[in-house]
């Protein structure tokens, strides 16, 4: 079987799946650690059919929001509800890729197998899906290599393949290209676009504006734990409403300070009198 035939099987399998758990509704969700509110009263709805990009500088709460939605952490306040018919088993229909790929100390193939086995998929099916995924993501020649001996770009591609192999309805991606060079980023974005065409909802955080423009249908703009703007991508990039979002899009927010930085009043340099 050639690789294009394989990829067709993959696409069909995902496409036949209907919408089981979306939309996801967040109602006044907050998250606290040691009395510090890191996510503040967020309300939003994630709908099927579009890719949502979470934008914002470091410390905005992008990763926490993803983890809250995925159920890895529980909100301190507010409610988070999957509203589709299969919401009792919501975890079964989701997958996540982390900023730093978590590779099991086994071969590439065994890493894919592990994800599928965790979801209770039969051995025969595991073999078939694994082969298919290795072909689509271009990892077939590395199938037997130890996963941790791969380059960071290849590791992240494997992490993405492992998540995709679960055929999730929603795929959460936490800055998956943050540590990658442009070539690896491009290859990962291509896979993400392909996943999107199979009907999987992408929810991805990034602070890379170019990437957001390439992949987003909707944008959530976060700053210091608050959701400041929730808009369709073209509207957000053309005419952002929030002033901080405007500053971020102009590339100014990252070094934007309310007060100007001043050196301490007396600066003494060692050796200079």
């Amino acid at each position: 079987m050639d690789s294009s035939a394989n990829s067709n099987i993959g696409l069909k399998q995902s496409q036949t799946k209907g919408h089981n758990i979306l939309p996801l509704k967040l109602d006044n969700v907050s998250y606290e650690v040691n009395g510090m509110r890191l996510i503040k009263e967020m309300s939003l709805t994630l709908n099927s059919g579009t890719s949502t990009i979470i934008l914002g500088p470091n410390g905005a709460g992008k990763s926490l929001l993803l983890r809250l939605c995925h159920g890895l952490i529980k909100p301190s306040d507010g409610a988070l509800t999957w509203q589709g018919p299969a919401n009792a088993n919501a975890a079964q229909y989701q997958a996540m890729v982390f900023q730093r790929p978590v590779m099991l100390r086994r071969s590439v193939t065994a890493n894919l197998h592990f994800g599928l086995r965790s979801r209770g998929i039969s051995r025969a099916e595991r073999d078939q899906i694994t082969d298919e995924m290795l072909q689509i993501t271009g990892l077939a020649r590395l199938a037997k290599s130890p996963a941790r001996a791969l380059s960071i770009g290849e590791q992240q591609r494997l992490a993405l393949a492992r998540a995709w192999s679960l055929k999730p309805e929603v795929l959460f991606l936490d800055e998956p290209t943050a540590n990658l060079d442009p070539a690896a980023t491009h290859s990962l974005e291509e896979i993400i676009s392909t996943i999107k065409t199979t009907g999987t909802k992408i929810v991805m955080s990034t602070h890379d504006l170019g990437q957001a423009k390439r992949l987003a249908d909707d944008v959530l703009f976060l700053y210091r734990g608050r959701l400041l703007e929730n808009a369709p991508a073209d509207k957000f990039f053309d005419e952002p409403q929030n002033d901080l979002a405007q500053a971020f899009l102009k590339g100014e927010l990252l070094w934007w300070h309310r007060q100007e930085l001043k050196p301490p009043s007396e600066v003494k340099y060692r050796g200079i009198k």
């Binding site: 997958a95 978590v102 994800g115």
Partner: peptide, 25 residues
């Protein structure tokens, strides 16, 4: 510490988790 979030995301059952950790270690 390295695997916890990933296993939780995959929904790996407790018994499989222990076996996987012993094997990877």
């Amino acid at each position: 510490n390295e695997y916890a979030e990933q296993f939780s995301s995959l929904g790996t059952p407790p018994k499989e988790t222990v076996i996987a950790l012993l094997w990877d270690n």
